[in-house]
């Protein structure tokens, strides 16, 4: 009973504890419900040859990374050197999902872009960007209207998905990949998945 005056102090410290924990969380990182679920099916035109397509089934049997990017995405520039370095190691195939190259760009008024011009414009912009910044992708595919992005639950570019041999999403990295995240999380997961039969 003598320690009664300590009760508010205790409650205060409890509150501080909760608030401190809340500060350590990142509200922008929304856990994806797609983890450990089969990757959404897609068939999209390739950036190197838009006549040809790449489908989810084409990647079956491989552990691979799907990296969502666009030339208008500022954070992608930050992550790009990490991807270029990753590509040089040739440990894991990297597929680029070019997300809404033209209509995602806030600087472009879509009312002034004719529908038939969007694809050629996207190809030109994406190729230019890869030429000046380096192309780490084994193949890039074009998600012009962002529909495949929605299927993958993309809400902020860049995002990266790690997909296993059976086509199941095993990990998602939201935001630019840092060298630390690559070394400590992504590459160990790649190695573990490769070891799976």
């Amino acid at each position: 009973m003598k320690a009664k005056f300590l009760v508010p102090l205790f409650l205060f410290l409890l509150l501080v504890g909760f608030l401190g924990f809340g500060l350590s969380l990142n509200p922008r990182e929304v856990p994806s419900p797609l983890i450990d679920k089969p990757a959404p099916d897609f068939t999209l035109a390739r950036l190197d040859n838009p006549e040809q397509t790449l489908a989810l089934a084409d990647m079956k049997g491989q552990v691979w990374l799907l990296n969502v990017w666009a030339s208008w995405c500022v954070a992608c520039r930050q992550e790009h050197p990490v991807l270029v370095a990753l590509a040089k190691r040739k440990e894991v195939p990297l597929v680029g999902l070019n997300y809404k190259e033209v209509r995602g760009d806030g600087g472009i008024d879509m009312r002034k872009v004719a529908a038939e011009n969007e694809l050629p414009m996207a190809i030109e912009r994406a190729r230019d960007w890869l030429q000046s910044h380096g192309d780490p992708y084994d193949v890039s595919i074009l998600d012009i209207n962002g529909r495949v992005g929605i299927d993958f639950g993309v809400y902020g570019v860049p995002e990266t998905f790690l997909i296993d041999k059976q086509g199941v999403i095993r990990h998602k990295h939201i935001g630019p990949i840092t060298p630390d995240a690559l070394r400590d999380t992504i590459l160990p997961k790649v190695a573990a998945l490769k070891a799976e039969s």
């Binding site: 929304v30 856990p31 994806s32 419900p33 797609l34 929605i150 299927d151 639950g153 809400y155």
Partner: peptide, 8 residues
Amino acid sequence: MVARYGDF
């Protein structure tokens, strides 16, 4: 929507 973005 939930299948893609979760309960959030």
